[in-house]
Deep mutational scan, measured.
Amino acid sequence: NKFNKEMRNAYWEILHLPNLNEEQKNAFIQSLYDDPSQSANLLAEAKKLNDAQA
């Protein structure tokens, strides 16, 4: 299933973003579980936030 793979990839990438705190990571990961079809968008948002907090 495409979403499972996308979701897993997004999950791991978000988990390893160095500039997000636990609360931010948890919020993105919760959103992933709530709507796996948004994995790519959530990952993009997480990366933007990560870069902004660098």
Rank of each mutant, 00 (worst) to 15 (best):
A46T: 02
E22Y: 13
P36T: 05
I29W: 12
E23H: 11
P36S: 04
K5T: 01
L15S: 03
I29L: 06
K47S: 05
E23Y: 11
W12Y: 06
E45T: 13
L20N: 00
Y11R: 12
M7H: 03
N26V: 12
H16Q: 06
S39I: 11
E6M: 08
K47V: 04
R8K: 11
N1Q: 04
N21D: 10
L42G: 02
A46P: 00
N19E: 05
I29P: 00
F28R: 02
P36I: 02
N9D: 07
A10L: 02
E45A: 14
E13Y: 15
R8I: 08
L49K: 09
L15E: 02
W12M: 02
A52S: 10
D34Q: 14
I29D: 00
K48W: 09
S39D: 01
S31M: 07
S39V: 06
L15R: 14
A44V: 08
K5E: 15
N1M: 02
E22Q: 10
M7D: 02
Q24E: 06
A54F: 08
E22N: 13
A54E: 06
N19D: 04
K2A: 09
M7F: 13
N9Q: 14
E22T: 12
A40N: 10
N26E: 07
L17V: 01
W12Q: 03
A46S: 07
K2L: 10
F3V: 14
P36F: 04
K47G: 03
N1S: 03
Y11A: 08
S39A: 11
A10I: 03
I29T: 03
W12G: 02
A54N: 12
K47A: 03
P18A: 10
A46L: 01
L49W: 09
H16Y: 07
A27I: 11
N21E: 08
A52G: 14
N41A: 11
K48M: 09
S31N: 07
F28Y: 08
Q30P: 01
N50H: 04
E13R: 15
I29A: 08
I14A: 01
Y11V: 12
Y33H: 03
N50A: 08
E6P: 01
A40K: 12
A44F: 15
I29E: 01
R8D: 01
L15Y: 12
E13P: 00
A40R: 08
Q38P: 02
E6Y: 05
E23Q: 12
K2P: 07
A46H: 00
A10W: 02
N41K: 13
P36V: 04
S37G: 05
Q38V: 08
K25L: 10
A44I: 11
Q24L: 07
L15G: 02
E13H: 15
Q38F: 05
